[in-house]
Nucleic acid binder design. Structure first.
Lengths: 194, 194
DNA sequence: GTCTATACGACGATAGAC
DNA sequence: GTCTATCGTCGTATAGAC
């Protein structure tokens, strides 16, 4: 379980960890936020002992969080946003993205890392990483809205993002996931209609 | 600083703390969430030592959180939701509620307690208190939408709530508070129009 | 009701053997 | 690169003097 990264992306600054480990670290930060993601929980989730985690991430917990955010951004771009830029009818692409979104967020039962990890963290690196991921999200949505012929595509994109984030918060607070499904369903009129 | 509660509301189950202290406790939970709201921070914010906090709240940190949520719900009902049920034109009342909302959330710079405190807390009392407050919020919005003649007032109310919550999350993640101002501005069409 | 003092476990982080 | 063991600090929570 240590013969990883054959010739993958050399863009990451350091920190060697397998995709599975990053998945598990990501899950902890996503569910518990910065303060709730303790080394104990991260250790239990990955099966690695504290010292091994620090071996992979010499930058400590902050580096783990940044790596988790970048990993989440990559997964989100590949799984959710990619269908938006493929060939085919815009409405169909937006619909496919909606399905991917619903899966990504467990149909309203899993929170957004960009939400949970930004609570009261005073680490500039984390804030920057989140801004990066969310910016890409907005850009991809805006491109769809522009293709649909809307005159303020960025505003439309942000509106869609707001609806998703808000519905996840409401789902967490009330236990009702219908608003999330509504937010996904309304993507068509928000992004694919002029 | 201890001659409080003359004959106020005997509805609260126990826990004697002044409004100012509850304000300060509320501010800590709102900004830092459940895990980040440490006794040190609560002690520093109130000026009370740990033991004094436990004297006011024999139920410990959970009791402090529940009291903060109820206090926030009361303030929100009095400051923000009350204008909706007063006399006068519906559009004007909704507009006034928008102004109160903007002030309550620092124009997008202060988060919602119902959001931050629900992150990874496994305390049923806290979840119940939040559900209570959010439920009242939805009901008040739905009453306005019903008065406007909408046929699905509850859905409209939830849509407005989602927009506000989502814009606060986006503001936290990106630093841009314009989506929040937009959410407030759109209250008129969401709640006051048929 | 306020305080000082403290219990005891969990926190992030390291040292150093293997 | 993995582990055990440990550091010093902070977490929630109490005891008990005043």
């Amino acid at each position: 379980m240590n013969e990883e990264r054959p010739g993958s992306s050399p863009a990451s600054p350091a920190s060697s960890a397998s995709r599975e480990e990053l998945d598990q670290i990501l899950a902890v930060f996503r569910a518990h936020g910065w303060e709730g993601a303790s080394l104990s929980r991260l250790s239990a989730a990955t099966g690695l002992h504290r010292a091994s985690l620090y071996h992979r991430f010499p930058g400590g917990k902050t580096a783990m969080a940044v790596a988790a955010i970048r990993h989440a951004g990559q997964k989100f771009a590949d799984d959710v946003l990619a269908p938006l830029t493929e060939d085919g009818d815009l409405t169909e692409r937006v619909q496919r993205t909606g399905l991917r979104l619903a899966r990504f967020f467990g149909h309203g039962t899993r929170w957004c890392l960009s939400d949970t990890i930004t609570l009261a963290v005073d680490e500039p690196a984390i804030a920057a990483a989140v801004r990066d991921v969310v910016g890409g999200w907005i850009e991809a949505f805006a491109a769809a809205a522009a293709e649909a012929g809307h005159d303020a595509p960025r505003e439309r994109a942000i509106a869609a993002l707001v609806a998703i984030q808000g519905s996840l918060v409401v789902a967490r607070a009330t236990g009702d996931t219908r608003p999330f499904e509504d937010a996904i369903a309304s993507l068509d009129t928000t992004l694919a209609q002029p």
